[in-house]
């Protein structure tokens, strides 16, 4: 089944779904719509965004014009709507706002995408990140608690190491789960900072 066919099944005619900060809908005639979930009351007044370029620019900055390098940060701007009839076109529009988020869920749900443990991700790093893999479990938990949890809408699907069990995330009729199947560049960078901080502290002149 293609990604477009999967979307058609997940979002049948005359239905709605939550996806990250978005509310997705499909009318009885088949028109797909995406709006920010906080816009629900006033669709007529919203700015229509038609092109992928417009949607990428929307997702690039928050309401204070601060750069959003992490697209699943909970800071997506309101005040817009995008709509189209074609399923593949609609997935492209969702990807412009949340790159790869839909395909990640589909691959995970089909059992085609196995989450990668944090240690596995950190241990393969090289260059300036080569010591990131030396973090202890306390630091790993701190990354999840202080970086991932407040800063990202994705639900962590990876374990800290390959021996840890992690619950499988199940489909939901009301929303498409936003999954993190592998620690991102922000987690890797934070791991490096924590290792460096600990090294500097241990080697500080008395």
């Amino acid at each position: 089944m293609t990604l477009a066919e999967t979307l058609e099944n997940l979002l049948p005619l005359d239905s709605t779904l939550r996806f990250g900060e978005l509310r997705l809908s499909r009318s009885a005639k088949g028109l797909y719509r995406a709006v920010h979930s906080r816009n629900e009351a006033s669709e007529e007044a919203l700015e229509k965004l038609e092109s992928l370029k417009e949607l990428r620019e929307l997702a690039k900055f928050d309401a204070n014009n601060e750069y959003r390098p992490l697209k699943t940060a909970p800071t997506l701007k309101c005040g817009w709507i995008t709509e189209c009839e074609d399923s593949a076109d609609f997935i492209g529009r969702l990807d412009a706002v949340y790159p790869g988020l839909f395909a990640t869920w589909v691959a995970y749900d089909r059992g085609e995408l196995t989450p990668v443990s944090l240690r596995n991700t950190l241990d393969r790093q090289t260059g300036m990140y080569r010591f990131a893999g030396t973090i202890n479990d306390q630091m790993a938990n701190r990354i999840m608690r202080e970086v991932c949890s407040p800063g990202c809408l994705r639900k962590i699907a990876w374990p800290i190491d390959d021996q840890c069990a992690v619950s499988r995330i199940k489909p939901n009729e009301r929303y498409i789960p936003a999954l993190c199947t592998e620690a991102c560049t922000f987690a890797v960078s934070t791991a490096r900072e924590l290792v460096k901080e600990a090294y500097d502290k241990a080697n500080a002149p008395e």
């Binding site: 990604l3 390098p69 990807d95 790159p99 790869g100 395909a103 990640t104 589909v106 592998e182």
Partner: peptide
Amino acid sequence: KEEPSFRQIWPM
């Protein structure tokens, strides 16, 4: 350093 990352691209 941005999304989609190299690790996120294959399912797309």
